[in-house]
Amino acid sequence: MKKLVRVILLNVIVLMVVSNQALSFADPSSLYTTEIPENWVYQAQRSNPHLSVFYGEGDYDLLYFQNLGPISDANVEAFVERTLALYEGPGGLQKFYLDKAPHQVEVAGERGLACVYSYEERSGVTLWEYRIFLILPDQQGFSIALGGRAPWNDQDYPVLTETLSQWRWLF
């Protein structure tokens, strides 16, 4: 009986370990690789060679990486400033509010800026987004965004922490 319980327990532990495993993700345009937590699902229909979209467990959980192609901003600060001005301005995001001002981050050795902002989506729900802005070699604009319903604090990005720790650029 004891042996059976041990076997069952061992199986449960193995299953738990396996179920928490992240999935390797290679960008279709060969720009980067990373790991995505297993309960985040790749959305093929919304993705394209320049945009990779993942849905999380929550109804609004969203993780996406976008390669914008060439941009003309002199530095990442100007890129962030221009983007946020457009988000905030006419035709931008409804009830835009900058929760956390742009601050420096590093993604696999590439320096960027990150910020947190909230806005109201069409049905009136307030959404928060943590966004990282980067300018890669050849003036390629790049963005990593984690969206959801929770008004996150700086420490509340386990998904992003995991994804960014495994991030590797392929250039």
Partner: peptide, 14 residues
């Protein structure tokens, strides 16, 4: 058509 100086998309779940 390639937008010369794009800004990142803001996506919402469908």
């Amino acid at each position: 058509v390639v937008v010369p100086n794009p800004v990142p998309l803001v996506l919402q779940r469908q």
